[in-house]
């Protein structure tokens, strides 16, 4: 059995979280609130040291790059929501962020999710697997047509498409569940090996 205080605390908190499998209880509530609170504090400190400081404070106040006044102003405008009378100002930086990222992602998604995928599917029909891939992509795309009714041949193709999707989901489900099982094994190893020392 471990003689390290940190291991005992970690084991206690692990058991508190696992107790949720029975039902909600004070131990789970304690661990949950501790987890949420400490992680929120951790991320606040992380953002200050890894984002705010190197990307705003140092360039603006240490290196004198005046262009950084713009993000500073946007940040201050965001904080205006703390005062209800001028809270509307916070909508401007928000609109700037959403608009900028929507435009930026348009190009990124078009390249990675459309052109690159179409190119990867453009293969000669030399074997059965490539034909299956082609049919899967084609019918899958048909399923995602929203402005046409799924009837007749079109509807049947869409139905084949959803079957392809479900088969893919099934495979993905099994694969991911195995990865999650490895997580629970890791936790059990911690409890039985690092904490209790009953296994080697």
């Amino acid at each position: 059995m471990s003689t390290t205080l940190g291991v005992w605390i970690a084991a206690f908190l692990t058991l508190c979280i696992l107790s949720f499998l029975y039902k909600d209880n004070p131990f789970y509530k304690f661990a949950e609130h501790l987890f949420v609170g400490t992680s929120a504090g951790y991320w606040a400190a992380y953002y200050y040291h890894n984002i705010l400081k190197p990307n705003l404070y140092v360039p603006l106040f240490k290196e004198g790059k005046l262009l950084y006044i713009i993000p500073l102003a946007l940040g201050i405008m965001m904080l205006m929501r703390l005062w209800p009378r001028i809270g509307w100002i916070s909508r401007w930086p928000l609109a700037f962020i959403v608009g900028t990222y929507a435009g930026y992602n348009l190009i990124t998604y078009l390249q990675t999710n459309a052109l690159a995928q179409v190119k990867a599917t453009l293969t000669p029909f030399t074997d059965v697997s490539r034909v299956i891939l082609f049919v899967g992509v084609l019918t899958g795309l048909i399923y995602f047509f929203f402005s046409k009714e799924h009837r007749g041949i079109f509807g049947k193709a869409a139905r084949v498409g959803i079957w392809f999707l479900m088969v893919a989901f099934g495979a993905s489900f099994g694969y991911t569940v195995m990865a999650r099982v490895s997580l629970i094994i890791g936790r059990m190893m911690f409890l039985l090996k690092d904490w209790l020392g009953v296994i080697d």
């Binding site: 179409v118 190119k119 599917t121 453009l122 047509f145």
Partner: peptide, 30 residues
């Protein structure tokens, strides 16, 4: 967007047929 998908389907069909006959210019263009 649906029309965009229709264009991609047309490119897929045409490109795959061309690739089966050894022509890859559509694939290269992408």
């Amino acid at each position: 967007q649906d029309w965009g998908k229709a264009i991609f389907i047309a490119i897929l069909l045409l490109g795959s047929i061309l690739a089966s006959f050894g022509h890859y210019f559509l694939s290269d263009w992408l």
